[in-house]
């Protein structure tokens, strides 16, 4: 359905924006390494089923892309552009995010199996793993416009999944309460950022016409 496709595209676009930002500026300043490492964990734990179940070519290719690109970004940040990388401001206590997500996955899952627990863990972790990035943004005070576009596209992706879940509930009679709950939490975390982004975009491109 349309929401699902739009969500996936916006997810794809967010990563392309991120890669382009890093390659063009030859720097990773303003980007949280912690958030990027958490994304590697999110994608690897969620897409373990790549090895066991086949959904579609589209599905497999996207999963491989998300795993590969997240690992690539971490490699860029830690190896290639390491010299220019300042980590002193990227100090969000990540252990609470990982620990909290793990507890949530033990409390909420569809089956008590290794892969289902990891899958649930990845949903909760994804919902909160932008926090170090938002924290860094707040600490540095200013951000390159491109970094905010990245966060916007990333937030939009899960927000678009919400109408997709409604659609699936009515058309396929399927309800994935775990995805919906984690997705709502994720969108809530982004909502403050969305508001600021919306205000700035309106200010810069809408009302300030000469």
């Amino acid at each position: 359905n349309l929401f699902r496709i739009a969500g996936d595209i916006s997810h794809l676009v967010s990563i392309l924006i991120l890669l382009q930002t890093i390659e063009k500026g030859k720097t990773t300043s303003g980007i949280s390494l912690k958030t990027q490492i958490l994304y590697v964990v999110v994608f690897v734990t969620r897409y373990l089923d790549l090895l066991t179940t086949y959904v579609s070519l589209y599905n497999s290719l996207m999963k491989i892309f998300f795993i590969a690109s997240s690992v690539y970004v971490v490699w860029l940040m830690t190896s290639k552009y390491n010299k220019k990388f300042k980590e002193d401001q990227d100090v969000f206590p990540v252990k609470y995010l990982v620990g909290g997500s793990f507890v949530m996955s033990l409390l909420f899952h569809y089956k008590f199996t290794f892969s289902e627990i990891l899958w649930s863990f990845s949903l909760w972790l994804e919902a909160v793993c932008i926090l170090p990035q938002l924290f860094l943004l707040q600490k540095t005070g200013e951000a390159k416009a491109i970094t905010t576009h990245y966060i916007f596209a990333l937030g939009l992706y899960r927000a678009l999944y919400i109408p997709n879940w409604f659609y699936r509930y009515y058309s396929e009679n399927r309800l994935d309460l775990l995805s919906v709950s984690a997705g709502l939490l994720q969108t809530t975390i982004y909502s403050d950022f969305f508001y600021v982004y919306y205000q700035k975009v309106l200010k810069n491109w809408g009302f300030n016409l000469p």
Binding site: R174, L175, L177
Partner: peptide, 10 residues
């Protein structure tokens, strides 16, 4: 509705 994980999603 059938309560099950949407494993076909990303």
């Amino acid at each position: 509705a059938e309560a099950s994980p949407n494993h076909d999603e990303l």
